[in-house]
Nucleic acid binder design. Structure first.
Lengths: 257, 257
DNA sequence: CGCCGCGTTGAAGAAAATCAAAGCACGTGG
DNA sequence: CCACGTGCTTTGATTTTCTTCAACGCGGCG
């Protein structure tokens, strides 16, 4: 239960946006519940569950989704290490989406009522929370554009490039290789396509030398090419209310900008 | 510049979620800039503009959109009287979307830095702002499901029923008639379809006796039927952190639930 | 071994886009 | 008051994109 600051998921996440002073760090530490191990395919929560906490994802992948009456599902979000899960359910007493772990994972829980303490005692953190939720929304907006006005090729390319970008922020992107624990089915459910079509589109990309896939692993051979296919522009990921930039940990950022 | 509380857009909006005490009302009043008239087709702001304020929409309709490189556009949001416009741009120094007025309108401006005063002086309002932005996100999520996993029929029906629901909240829905200043083109851009296809789907609905359209006007003949077509469930519109329900102004709410 | 989840492949079909043109309503100016 | 332009709706014919269905291979794992 007593972590060092370096182990705190939420502080690490917040630090990537702006500097958090010692006082605020202590506040966060005192509110966060220690890391817990979860195993693959565990359901973090389901639509309709009581909504009284959110999580920070320290290690592993997760995704949120909505089940449809006809048996299909829409994947709404893919979470990677460093992400906050469930902040958007803040306004509801019951969960409006479900969340499943795509890999074994380490999570920190954060009871919702602790948000009050944050709002009450730190203007910086209050602003920051607001900024994070607003950035989440920007990502959703972009996903909306993706689903509404792009072809399957563009959708898939855009999704992958965005993911690479987000992974770059927390250094999980080693060279152009990244572990991608997403089945073609999940990709399809995220992009509003069928897995069959995802499969064929991936084949096209491989033939064009844009990427390679294999065994939960993705190799981006030509990120610029992919970004071009997608019409990708990273502006929507770059929050800038606080002047201090995130510590740039990765060459991706420059390569894409 | 000196409005009575009843004229304040933002207070009215907030009151629909929970009770605002006098102190908070005064605070809001002091921060809000008086109502301004705008005319149809005016651009509130454009992608890339400096982002330093948001608006409350007192009268009229607006929509936010993103222009694509290929000339098409994706409509992201349709705003109706009582809505807050631009809250989600909070995290960015420049606008990530554009907003255009669909009718003549009355708006109140709210400088962003005033949010700090709110965060600093009222825990209630701080929570409320958070709730509102979270609810916005829930609506976006639902729109995402709409775009990703529904047919044209379902998309259109869902969109219209959601709109009716939202209008019901602020009493703009008289009987089953509502003014709908949306061209088929805008509907298409909102739903990721073409106006031709919207036209044909609307014709189907008319033939099935579900609705009537004409001249910026929509008549919902069979809301239940439409909701059924759409697989509509209003849970995502019902925020419930604050126990007090919004004053129910309209028979719609019961009819649909 | 046999099952199961996942990726891959092919053929056929459905949903929606595209292109092009015509009609209609409304405001504006002659 | 009528002619005209403009923006929106409507219509038909054609094409593209993506889905559906069905089957097979392959690897991991109980």
């Amino acid at each position: 239960m007593s972590e060092q600051p370096a182990d705190s998921c939420i502080i690490k996440h917040f630090q990537s946006y702006t500097n958090i002073d010692d006082k605020d760090q202590q506040l966060l530490l005192s509110l966060e519940k220690g890391p817990q191990e979860w195993s693959k395919n565990a359901i973090l929560w389901q639509q309709g569950d009581k909504s009284d906490s959110f999580f920070t994802l320290n290690k592993g992948w997760a995704c949120s989704f909505r089940d449809m009456e006809d048996g299909s599902r829409q994947v709404l979000d893919v979470f990677v290490p460093g992400d906050i899960i469930g902040l958007r359910e803040f306004a509801f007493q019951t969960r409006i989406t479900s969340v499943v772990l795509l890999t074994d994972a380490v999570l920190c829980s954060f009871p919702r009522q602790h948000l009050d303490s944050i709002f009450a005692s730190s203007l910086t953190l209050c602003n920051l929370m607001f900024m994070i939720i607003a950035r989440d929304q920007a990502i959703l907006l972009e996903r909306l554009v993706n689903l509404g006005r792009r072809t399957a090729r563009e959708k898939l390319a855009h999704f992958l490039v965005e993911l690479a970008h987000r992974l770059g922020r927390t250094n999980a992107l080693v060279e152009k290789h990244l572990s991608l624990p997403l089945t073609q089915n999940i990709l399809a459910d995220a992009l509003g396509l069928t897995s069959v079509h995802i499969n064929r589109t991936l084949q096209d990309f491989r033939q064009e030398g844009l990427l390679n896939t294999g065994n939960c692993h993705l190799e981006l051979l030509n990120i610029k090419g992919l970004a071009e296919v997608a019409g990708f522009d990273a502006f929507y990921l770059e929050t800038s209310v606080f002047s201090q930039p995130a510590k740039s940990g990765c060459s991706m950022q420059e390569e894409l900008s």
